[in-house]
């Protein structure tokens, strides 16, 4: 294990140990061991974070194949949650079969063979054209535009966007060879910490709702505090990236803003469909998409920023 890997592993483990100790203290001192919805949810979340960190860590150590298999599974779960609450009709059955069993594995296969020219257009060009064709064959025209767009958007968010996380491994950055896994750690750490810190700042200082129609829990104070502190952390982590200190700050700002806006968009979809959470897969967090909504929106932007400015 090289020194940087050691630092970041120790850092993340330190944060989680700290969160676990705080959670245990709250449980025994404040709640005195009795059931307490907020503290129990906090502890469930911390426990789920341990699991997620361990799973992502193992995948990163397993290398490219491990990371691709993990995120293909993540995409499968995300697409499953999305289509479950999306309004589709019987005529969409073959479009859905194709999305799950052909488009999803094919996209990750393209990333595995590192064919950038194809994996960056396969879903928005080929899948987006073929899916409505399949949906039109049964002849059911009711809500056709809405149904087509629904499935396309599901693939966009759950498969295309998420697949840009493992795609970071395929970027050839001069002087950064063999270290691309740190880009994944950087992206997930900064974006997820931004979510957590927005929640913490919002709980501490939150007064002014920022988007009451979309997400009643998000506040201006939480947004500013969370993004600012996540950018500070991202800047401090510049040593694990190909960025300079100033570049690390700008990149962190871009991905935390995209993450925040992604959270708003995914909330709008949940509101429209009348559900509170996407699923119940990750205890305390809700579903896969509840945890990953911000990563979905930041991953492709992060990928293209790095690709445009840092690869020849």
């Amino acid at each position: 294990m090289d020194q940087h890997t050691l630092w970041i592993t120790a850092g993340i483990a330190g944060i989680l140990v700290f969160a676990s100790v705080v959670g245990a203290c709250l449980k025994f001192l404040l709640a005195r061991g009795a059931p307490h919805p907020v503290i129990d949810n906090l502890n469930a979340r911390v426990k789920a974070w341990w699991m997620m960190v361990i799973v992502i860590g193992l995948a990163l150590f397993a290398g490219k194949t491990g990371v691709i298999v993990l995120f293909a599974f993540v995409s499968l779960m995300a697409l499953r949650e999305y289509i479950t609450i999306a309004p589709t009709r019987r005529g969409d059955h073959w479009a859905l079969v194709l999305s799950f069993f052909v488009v999803l594995p094919f996209q990750y296969g393209l990333i595995w063979i590192e064919w950038y020219g194809m994996y960056s257009i396969f879903i928005p060009v080929y899948a987006f054209l073929v899916l409505p064709i399949l949906a039109s064959i049964p002849g059911d025209t009711r809500d056709f535009l809405q149904r087509s767009a629904t499935i396309q958007w599901g693939l966009m968010v759950s498969v295309f966007c998420i697949s840009h996380v493992p795609a970071l491994l395929t970027l050839g950055i001069p002087g950064y060879e063999g270290r691309n896994a740190f880009l994944i750690v950087f992206l997930i750490l900064v974006v997820q910490l931004s979510d957590v810190l927005q929640y913490v700042w919002g709980k501490l200082l939150g007064r002014t709702k920022i988007a009451p129609e979309l997400s009643p829990s998000k506040t201006v104070e939480g947004f500013v505090g969370g993004v600012a502190s996540a950018v500070a952390i991202g800047t401090a982590l510049y040593w694990m990236t190909p960025f300079s200190i100033g570049e690390a700050a700008l990149v962190s700002l871009a991905i935390t803003l995209m993450g925040f806006l992604g959270g708003l968009v995914m909330s709008a979809i949940k509101r429209d469909r009348g559900v509170k959470d996407w699923g119940a897969m990750i205890e305390g967090h809700g579903g896969m998409l509840d945890r990953l909504d911000s990563v979905c929106f930041s991953a492709p932007i992060f990928f293209h920023i790095v690709r445009y400015w840092w690869t020849p």
């Binding site: 499953r80 949650e81 479950t84 019987r90 059955h93 079969v97 799950f100 699923g279």
Partner: peptide, 18 residues
């Protein structure tokens, strides 16, 4: 809920919805 969408009548391949 949703089982009809997983496997509509007459279709051979199920879709893995929740």
């Amino acid at each position: 809920d949703n089982l009809r969408r997983v496997l509509p009548k007459g279709e051979p391949v199920p879709v893995p919805l929740l």
